[in-house]
Every structure is written in structure tokens, then in C-alpha cells.
Nucleic acid binder design. Structure first.
Lengths: 241, 241
DNA sequence: CGAGGTGTTGAAATATCTCAAGCGCCGTGG
DNA sequence: CCACGGCGCTTGAGATATTTCAACACCTCG
């Protein structure tokens, strides 16, 4: 029975003791609720607090000179914005909520003390960051070498597994509050094309995305189309539950 | 007068004292020469030594289930393979030399002692890793939202600037030992298409890539086509020289 | 009730790929 | 020294995936 998505998330990466979870809980006391479409971080900001998503979804994105948007990452409950980004002078992308979300903000200084004093936490944060980086690599591979159907399938696999890892998915279903436009901006496609791809996957009785939730009908075929190998998510130490 | 590409690279991120540069030099004593096409790291390996490229180029890549290759990163002199990746169980991509290269390998244990004892080094390594991550994000944006000409132009801008940052580029030219096939695998394109794009850029008198080197003819137009904004490379503290 | 965001569909336009062939260069082996 | 094979580059023509443009239906929210 874990009180907090951050703890649930990190405890997948390192065995945390009671003392550590207590520290994390305490650090997360400053919680705010934001509506969908609220910016947590804007490009060019001075990085200050570390945000942790406790409930809801967010995404990181970049705007290209021609006005196009590319989504770079999805933040699920327990995920946080890059901690050490403070070292850089300015942030090079935006982070925005995709749904109503409750978000804890931890003062950076406090954060660093916390990490330095607790080797298990250090390790958990490192791991988490490395997994993020691994996901970025995997996205590049997807954008570069997968066709649209495969790309959609792959992203759905990734997000489903990530949701399952934090205890937010059932056997064949999970929340997936993404509009087709958002999906398009994440996959480097057009909204219309995403629509057609989703139709194909539905007609083939493989998966169905609607009303903000994903239903996996034939998980084997889905993974096959996606060419999905979850290794890059570097599995949790112990499954949730 | 810097003896070593690693030092040159890191000193762009943090002011290193004589003591620190001496330590780094000493750590780099174990140097080997590899031919082009040699694998430094293979997917699934147990991560052990940290490799630093002293001379030559390397790249990281993934192989997709259908056999396709996607290049994920280019390693230039001074770049190194992810240090903290040791935390993960297994590496999820390959690293291969693209040219004859001289490579230092640092025992991981030694590395960690070094870092923990020297805050400036810690900072430099952090920064370096964050820049790598920033480059990954920028690649995703490129693959998702730029057309082939823009994508080629953008990569050339990035690599030129990175070469310049380590003192390996002249005003309008630098080494660029990439075959069109490699370029294609990095950009998510076909070798034939890369060829046609390069032709266009050459005919338009913007840049020319041949015999392993890049010549920039009209840097303004090149940056314009690319929509290049170098911020994501998070400039060095002091320019090389 | 109207407005705006989201999803749906069709038809035409276009970027990129695929397949296929030929060329030039370079290192190797006869 | 020449012939050969291999790799990288080049070019063409046709095929295909994805985009673009445009219209409409649906729903929620004010």
C-alpha cells in the first residue's frame, strides 16, 4: 500500500527502506492540481523546482521553427522532470499537462540534499534517468525505421507496459488519454493518418483506442506488428502488487 | 595545449584544474587502436569499461526486428560511452567505430572513484550526459517533423558545430567520414534518397559532402534550411583555442 | 444555440522508397 | 602489371506510404 506515485515508481528501480520512503513522502508535500494544457516548464526557463507527476499525464515537446510540434516524451504518474537539468543554463523543451494532473514540486536544493544523503535514492534516480534516455533512443529507432502502423503499435506497447509497471493497467486495458492529434505529434505523423492507422488496427481486431482508453484485443499480434521488445524499459526489480 | 581529447571535451563543461586534468590523463593511459567497423560494445553485453574516443569517429546504433539499422548517436573525439549505464543490467544498443580510431578504456571502478572525489569532474560528466540527452531529443524532433533536405542540413550543422567545439573544424570545413549509407541509417532515409538530397544541396551551392569531408558554402542558407538553433548543444564555457 | 475541439472520410498531390543498372575507385591476388 | 571483386556513389522509372486539402458529423461547454 504505497501512498505516492513517486515512491511506487522509484521502488521499481531500487529497494527503498522505510526511512527513504518517508523522506520522499515528506518532500512531496507541496502538491498542486493543474488543468489539462497547463505548462509546467517552458523552453528557455531557468530550471528550478523538480516536478513529479502524482496523477494524470503530461508530455514534453519541442516546437520547430516552422511551427510544427514534436512530442519528445510522455510523463506518467510517478515520472518527473529531469532532476539534474539544473546544471544546464536553460531548458530546451516544454512540459505540459495532457490531462488534469496533480503535481508535486520539490525545491531543487532540498532534492539534492536528499539524494546525496541516500545512496539508494541516488541509484533509483540514476536508473530512472537512464531508462528515460533508453526510451529516447528507442523512439529514434521507431521514427527512423518503423512504418506508421508499426510505430503506433510500438508506442501503445510502451505506454501499456509503463502503465502496468506502476499498477495502472488491467490485463488488457488501460487509460490512454491521448487525442489523435497528440498521438500524431508524438509519432511524427498526421492526425488524419493516425486516424486511419487506428481504424486498421481496430478492424483487424488487434487493439482499440477510444474514449481515452486503450483496449488490447490480441496482444501477441500487437507486439509482433510493433516488433516490441520491452528490454529497453529495463524492467522493475519487483512487479507492482 | 591540451594533451587529450577527453580533457578538451570536458573542459568545455566545467573549469578543470591542473590536478583534475592530470587525473584524467593518467586514467586514459590504456589506449588501443581499432580499425573501422570494430564493435566497442554490443547489445546485451554486461557493461564494463568506459570507452573514450580519443581519435576517429564511432556511432551507436540499434538493429530492429526486421533487420533495419538505426543509428542513434555519433561519437566524436572526446565523447564517451554512457558512464552510469553500469547501473542497468544490459546494454540496449551497439557501439561501433566508423573510422580507424584510438580509444581509451577506463576501468569502471577507477572511474567512479575519480568522479566521486572531484566535484568539478562530477559536474562535467553530468553536463556531458545532459547534452547527450538533449541531442537525442533534438534527433527525435528532426526525424518526426523535418523533411529529408532539412534533416540532412540539420545533422550537418550539428556535427560541424560539435567538431568546431573540439577544435577540429576550420571556418567552413571539417572532416565528416560518413558514407551515404551511414547517413541514411542515421536519418531514417534510404541511401539513394540521401544521395539525391546531397546533390540538391550541392547544386544549390549550399554545402558539399565528399571524400569524407564537409564543405559549407553558404552557412546562412544551410542553417535556415535546417532550422538550426544550436542551443540544444548547450555551448561550452570557453571556446576552444 | 453556437463555437470549437475531436474524430471520420474521400480524393488528389507528393515525398520517399524500391528495384535495377551502371560507373569509378581501390586494394588484392594472380 | 593487370584483372578482379567489392564497395560506395549515381541515376532512372515506377510503386507506395503518407500528406494535404476539404468537408462533415459529433460532442461538450459556455
Amino acid at each position: 500500500m504505497m501512498s505516492n506515485a513517486l515512491i511506487r515508481h522509484l521502488s521499481g528501480y531500487s529497494r527503498l527502506g522505510d526511512a527513504e520512503t518517508a523522506l520522499l513522502s515528506a518532500a512531496c508535500k507541496n502538491v498542486r492540481e493543474f488543468p489539462a494544457g497547463h505548462h509546467l516548464i517552458r523552453e528557455g526557463d531557468d530550471p528550478d523546482p523538480v516536478f513529479v507527476i502524482l496523477e494524470g499525464w503530461a508530455c514534453g515537446y519541442k516546437i520547430l521553427p516552422d511551427g510544427g510540434r514534436q512530442i519528445i516524451s510522455f510523463l506518467l504518474p510517478g515520472d518527473f522532470c529531469d532532476i539534474h537539468i539544473a546544471i544546464l543554463h536553460a531548458i530546451d523543451h516544454n512540459i505540459m499537462t495532457l490531462t488534469k494532473a496533480s503535481v508535486a514540486s520539490l525545491p531543487r536544493a532540498e532534492m539534492e540534499v536528499l539524494i546525496q544523503a541516500n545512496p539508494n535514492l541516488t541509484q533509483a534516480f540514476w536508473w530512472s534517468q537512464l531508462v528515460d534516455q533508453s526510451i529516447l533512443r528507442s523512439w529514434i529507432a521507431s521514427m527512423g525505421r518503423r512504418k506508421s502502423v508499426e510505430r503506433v503499435a510500438h508506442l501503445m506497447c510502451e505506454l501499456y507496459i509503463r502503465m502496468r509497471n506502476i499498477g495502472l493497467a488491467s490485463d488488457d486495458e488501460c487509460k490512454m488519454p491521448l487525442t489523435q492529434l497528440v498521438l500524431a505529434d508524438a509519432l511524427g505523423l498526421t492526425p488524419v493518418h493516425v486516424n486511419r492507422v487506428l481504424r486498421v488496427l481496430k478492424k483487424a481486431e488487434i487493439m482499440e483506442l477510444s474514449h481515452g482508453s486503450l483496449k488490447i484485443i490480441d496482444s501477441v499480434k500487437l507486439a509482433e506488428i510493433a516488433g516490441f521488445d520491452g528490454n529497453y524499459l529495463h524492467e522493475r526489480i519487483r512487479p507492482y502488487g
